[in-house]
Design a protein around this nucleic acid. Structure first.
Length: 280
DNA sequence: CATCAACCCTGAGAGC
DNA sequence: TGCTCTCAGGGTTGAT
């Protein structure tokens, strides 16, 4: 469920030490590891992961698509939160100086030399972590960043026309564009007045530009509101209270008041205004 | 290349 | 109360 704005929010909080944790992890050296659920590690296996990651210092933290990218001294640590994953920073010890017990669904923890630890909590166990020398092995197939200024209206139009696919599954395909998930795709398509089943190669130049603008508008608003807090994962954001269509079946469209419809598109719950988003 | 379904998981909510 | 069933969803994989 975390999409680009939620992942961006987490990256900023962990990097800048603002928000709910008030501590940056940049410059911290990893002194210990707890692998609480082995399959969280996509690569390498727990033994190798622990051996390689201990002693590494966090040099920087960024985001690529929905991946968190931790640049370490000699490796790159990549984390994908998938559906229900979340990261938190806390003191490794409680008030009595004893090791702080882990919480339900904690899967992986990295302890730092300043007494803090980074904990990966993931109820549904879909999230994964990679420790690699070359991040391109994992990130290489991703499409462009939607907020990258280098992605021009012309390039985006050509991207749409080089495929013949329904808009919604295409926009959610991370090889096409990196960062959109179910929520922001529904929101952007509604803002652009486009139907999720419209075909990519039939989108006009004007509508293509409106779609790219709408995607950027929704992502920026999500980031400005610190992301959405849904699926029982609270990250401090409030974008969930400002959805146009997502999760609002039966409620009035913010444009025209027509009740929002819910349909299923490529196995995903999909929300549209049947008046504003017509299939022609 | 595009489409579709199954799979991985857990917990909430519905129905009985 | 407590059981069973259904659903949600990102990404991967394999079949068509």
């Amino acid at each position: 469920m975390p999409e680009l704005p939620e992942v961006e929010t987490i990256a900023r909080v962990l990097r800048d030490g603002t928000g709910i944790y008030n501590t940056s992890i940049i410059g911290c050296q990893i002194t210990g590891v707890h692998v609480l659920w082995a399959r969280t590690l996509a690569t390498p296996k727990p033994k190798g992961f622990i051996k390689q990651v201990i002693g590494q210092t966090v040099q920087s933290l960024s985001r690529r698509g929905k991946f968190l990218v931790f640049s370490l001294t000699d490796y790159t640590l990549l984390i994908h939160l998938r559906m229900s994953g979340d990261l938190r920073v806390e003191s490794a010890q409680d008030e009595n100086g004893k090791s702080r017990p882990f919480e339900k669904h904690d899967r992986l923890a990295l302890e730092f030399n300043n007494g803090q630890r980074l904990v990966f909590n993931d109820m549904r166990k879909f999230g994964r972590a990679w420790l690699v020398k070359d991040s391109a092995k994992v990130l290489g197939g991703l499409g462009p960043e939607p907020l990258d200024k280098g992605l021009t209206h012309k390039i985006f139009f050509d991207m749409l026309h080089s495929r013949k696919r329904q808009l919604k599954p295409l926009l959610m395909d991370q090889r096409f564009l990196a960062g959109l998930g179910n929520i922001y795709t529904d929101e952007a398509l509604h803002l652009a007045w486009l139907h999720p089943l419209a075909l990519s190669h039939q989108v006009t130049r004007e509508a293509s530009g409106q779609l790219l603008d709408a995607i950027r508008c929704m992502l920026k608003e999500g980031i400005r509101r610190n992301g959405a807090s849904i699926d029982r994962v609270y990250r401090g954001g409030d974008f969930q209270n400002h959805f146009r269509v997502y999760g609002r079946a039966g409620s009035p469209c913010p444009n025209c008041g027509t009740p929002i419809d819910r349909l299923v598109v490529s196995q995903r719950g999909t929300h549209i205004c049947p008046q504003c988003q017509q299939l022609d």
